[in-house]
Measured scan of single mutants.
Amino acid sequence: TYYTVKSGDTANKIAAQYGVSVANLRSWNGISGDLIFVGQKLIVKKG
């Protein structure tokens, strides 16, 4: 599943929404920190 980042989103918020850990969200998308951008497409695997 892909999720498009919206204004006000955070890695924590997206992870919680899908029931996954922030560490997994980072791993699936090659993100090292919490910096995400509006319009960015993230791979999300439901927990």
Rank of each mutant, 00 (worst) to 15 (best):
K41E: 10
K13T: 14
G8D: 06
V5I: 05
Y3D: 01
Q17S: 10
I43F: 09
K13A: 13
D34R: 06
A11S: 07
A23T: 10
A15D: 00
N24M: 14
V5F: 03
A11C: 15
L42I: 09
N29D: 01
R26S: 10
K13C: 08
S21E: 07
N29C: 03
S32G: 08
K13V: 08
T4P: 02
G30A: 11
K46D: 11
V44P: 00
W28F: 03
T4R: 07
V20S: 03
V20Q: 04
I31H: 04
T4G: 02
A23W: 08
T1V: 14
L35D: 15
L25I: 09
S32D: 13
G30Y: 08
G47D: 13
K13Y: 09
G39I: 05
L42H: 01
N24T: 13
D9R: 00
K45G: 12
T1C: 10
A15Y: 03
I14D: 00
N29Y: 02
G30M: 09
A16R: 10
K45N: 12
I43N: 05
G33M: 13
N24D: 15
Y18E: 05
W28R: 00
V20A: 05
V5R: 00
S32C: 11
N12L: 15
S7W: 13
W28V: 03
Y3W: 03
A11F: 15
F37I: 11
Y2E: 07
Q40E: 07
G19C: 08
K13W: 12
V20W: 03
I36L: 14
F37W: 10
G19L: 07
V5W: 05
S32V: 15
D34A: 08
G19P: 00
N12F: 14
K46L: 15
G47F: 12
L35S: 13
A11Y: 15
L35I: 13
F37A: 09
T10W: 03
Q17I: 13
V5P: 01
K41W: 07
S27G: 09
V5T: 04
G47N: 12
I14V: 07
K46F: 14
K46I: 14
V44S: 01
S32R: 11
Q40H: 05
S32N: 12
L35F: 13
S21P: 07
S32F: 11
A23V: 10
G33T: 09
Y3C: 04
R26A: 12
L35G: 11
I43E: 05
V38Q: 07
D9C: 04
T1F: 14
T4A: 06
W28P: 02
Q40M: 11
G39H: 04
G33K: 07
K6D: 04
K6C: 08
S27E: 15
G39D: 05
S7Q: 14
N12G: 13
A16M: 12
D34L: 08
G39Y: 06
Y2A: 05
N12P: 11
K45Y: 14
A11D: 06
K46P: 15
N12E: 15
Y18M: 09
V5L: 01
G19Y: 06
W28E: 03
L25G: 00
A23G: 09
L42M: 05
T10G: 03
Q40S: 06
V22G: 04
N29R: 01
A23Q: 12
V44A: 02
G39A: 03
K46W: 14
S32E: 15
